[in-house]
Simulated assay, not measured.
Amino acid sequence: MRKPAKKSSKNIRKSNFEERFSLMVADYHKAKETLDSMTEGTPEFAKQKKKCDSLFASAERFINAN
């Protein structure tokens, strides 16, 4: 009997990258929707904007690292 062929690690890494990146993008879009619904100038707006900027920077670092 033949042993089953292993998937290449490159394909596994690629699918893992796509899954993780899609989750990051989804989180960013949720935070951005919340930010868009808030009124500008409030403390909550500033806090949410900081969160959006942080999520965007995280996704950008993730792309640059991979």
Rank of each mutant, 00 (worst) to 15 (best):
M38K: 01
N11P: 02
D53E: 10
C52A: 04
F56M: 14
F56V: 06
S37G: 08
K7T: 13
N64E: 04
E33K: 11
K6S: 14
N11T: 07
N64P: 03
M38D: 01
A26W: 04
A26H: 10
A59W: 01
S15E: 06
L35T: 01
I63D: 11
F62T: 07
V25K: 03
S22I: 02
K10Q: 12
E33Q: 14
A5S: 13
M1H: 11
L35S: 00
F62I: 04
F62C: 08
E60F: 04
K30R: 08
C52S: 02
R2G: 11
A57R: 09
K32I: 03
K47T: 12
E19T: 15
M24N: 04
K14L: 15
V25M: 03
S22W: 01
K14C: 10
L55K: 01
S22F: 01
N16P: 03
K14F: 14
F62S: 05
V25H: 05
K3L: 15
M38Y: 00
E60D: 12
T34E: 06
S54G: 10
L35V: 01
A5M: 13
L23W: 11
N66R: 06
E18H: 09
D53Y: 04
K51F: 00
S9L: 12
T34L: 11
K14N: 15
K7R: 15
K47F: 02
A59L: 02
F21P: 09
L23R: 15
F17R: 04
Q48C: 02
S8A: 09
N16W: 06
N66Q: 09
N11D: 14
D36Q: 06
K49D: 02
D36G: 05
K30G: 06
F45Y: 02
M38V: 02
F21R: 07
K6N: 11
T39L: 07
N66K: 06
P4H: 02
F56C: 12
T34H: 04
R20P: 09
A26D: 03
M38E: 02
S9F: 07
K7Y: 12
M1E: 10
G41R: 03
S15I: 02
L35P: 00
F56Q: 14
C52Q: 00
D53F: 05
F45V: 05
K47C: 08
T42R: 01
P4D: 04
R13T: 13
S37H: 08
K14A: 15
Q48G: 01
T34A: 13
T34S: 13
A65K: 14
M24C: 07
K6T: 13
K51I: 00
L23M: 14
T39E: 12
K3I: 13
D53M: 08
F17Y: 03
P43I: 10
Y28N: 06
E33D: 14
F56A: 13
A46G: 08
E40C: 10
S15D: 06
G41L: 03
S58G: 15
A59E: 02
F21E: 04
T34W: 01
K50A: 15
E60H: 09
K32A: 10
